[in-house]
C-alpha cells in the first residue's frame, strides 16, 4: 500500500541512536574503567571494590530492601486496585489521593517520612500524647540501624506503591467485565474468580510492575541517603560516594555495572517465570 521508503526508519533513527549511545557508551566506559589499569587488563579495581568494608553490606542491604519492600508493595497495590476497580462515590478522589506519591521524589519522600518518624515527629508526638510511650522512639542514628531500615521501608512503601497500583489498576481496567461476569454466571465464587480469571489475566501487568519496581529498587539511593546516610550502605549510594568523595572512578563504575547486571538479571527472571502463555500463541 505504502511506497517502500526509508521515512519510518529515518524518523526513528535519531531517538534510537541517542538511546544506544547513552546506554552503550557508559557501559563500555564502565567496563574499561573497571577492568583496566594503565591501559592493560587488570582486576585490581575489582579487588579494591570487593575488599571495601562497605561492599558486601551494600550488596546485601540493596537486595534486602528490594526483598522486603517489593512484596509489600505488590500486595497493597493489588488490594487497592481490586477495591478501586469498583464503582463507588468518591472513587476518582480516592484514586487521585493514592497516586499523589508518584509525583514525589525519593529525596522528598525521605524528608516527608522524617517528619513522621523523627524524635519530635508526628508518630512520636501522637503516641506520647495518648500515653502509649513516655519517651520518643528513635528511628534514626547509627545505633538504631534496624529501625532506620524500617523507616526506609515505610517511606519507600508509602512513596512507590502508587506506581505498582497504577499499573495493576490499568491492567484490571483492561480486563473486560464480561470475562468476570461469565465466571460468576457459571458458579465461581469471588475467590475462584480472582484465582482462575483475574490473576492469570493480570499476569502481564504484574510482570511489568515487578520489573519497573525492581529496576528502581536496585538504584535505591535518595531516600537512604537522606534518612540513613552510609549507616545502611546501598549500591547506588556507594557508587556515588566513591565517585564524589573518594574520586575512585573505577570502583564507582563497578557499582554501576553491578546495578545494571542485577536489573537485567531480575528483568530476565521475571520475563521467564511470569510468562503469559496464552499471549504468546497468538502471534
Amino acid at each position: 500500500m505504502e511506497r517502500k521508503s526509508l521515512l519510518p526508519y529515518l524518523l526513528i533513527l535519531p531517538a534510537f541512536a541517542y538511546l544506544l549511545f547513552f546506554v552503550g557508551y557508559p557501559l563500555l566506559q564502565a567496563l574499561y574503567l573497571a577492568f583496566t589499569q594503565n591501559g592493560a587488563f587488570s582486576l585490581d579495581t575489582v579487588r579494591r571494590t570487593i575488599n571495601d568494608y562497605y561492599f558486601w553490606s551494600a550488596f546485601k542491604d540493596t537486595l534486602a530492601f528490594a526483598a522486603v519492600i517489593i512484596p509489600i508493595q505488590l500486595f497493597l497495590a493489588i488490594v487497592f486496585a481490586l477495591l478501586l476497580n469498583k464503582a463507588f462515590k468518591g472513587k476518582d478522589l480516592a484514586i487521585y489521593a493514592l497516586v499523589i506519591p508518584l509525583t514525589i521524589s525519593d529525596v522528598a519522600g525521605g524528608l516527608i517520612w522524617y517528619s513522621m518518624l523523627s524524635p519530635y515527629g508526628f508518630v512520636n508526638k501522637v503516641l506520647m500524647n495518648i500515653g502509649l510511650i513516655s519517651h520518643p522512639i528513635y528511628f534514626f542514628g547509627y545505633q538504631f540501624r534496624s529501625r532506620e531500615f524500617l523507616a526506609i521501608v515505610m517511606a519507600e512503601v508509602w512513596r512507590a506503591t502508587s506506581i505498582v497500583f497504577i499499573i495493576i489498576l490499568a491492567g484490571l481496567q483492561m480486563i473486560s467485565k464480561e470475562y468476570i461476569e461469565a465466571a460468576e454466571v457459571f458458579g465461581a465464587s469471588y475467590w475462584t474468580r480472582l484465582r482462575r480469571i483475574v490473576f492469570p489475566m493480570l499476569k502481564p501487568s504484574i510482570q511489568s510492575a515487578l520489573i519497573i519496581r525492581t529496576l528502581f529498587a536496585m538504584q535505591i539511593f535518595g531516600v537512604v541517603w537522606i534518612l540513613a546516610g552510609r549507616d545502611l550502605p546501598v549500591l547506588a549510594g556507594e557508587g556515588f560516594y566513591q565517585l564524589t568523595v573518594i574520586k575512585d572512578y573505577g570502583v564507582a563504575s563497578i557499582y554501576a555495572l553491578i546495578i545494571a547486571g542485577l536489573s537485567i538479571l531480575f528483568g530476565a527472571v521475571y520475563v521467564k517465570f511470569l510468562k503469559a502463555e496464552y499471549l504468546e500463541v497468538m502471534r
Binding site: E178, Y179, E181, A182, A183, V185, F186, M201, E277
Partner: peptide
C-alpha cells in the same frame, strides 16, 4: 452462582488464558 443458569455473552467472554 446459586441459580444454576448459563449464559452466552455478546463478546462471548471466552477466557483468553
Amino acid at each position: 452462582r446459586d441459580r444454576n443458569i448459563s449464559m452466552v455473552f455478546q463478546s462471548y467472554a471466552v477466557w483468553p488464558h
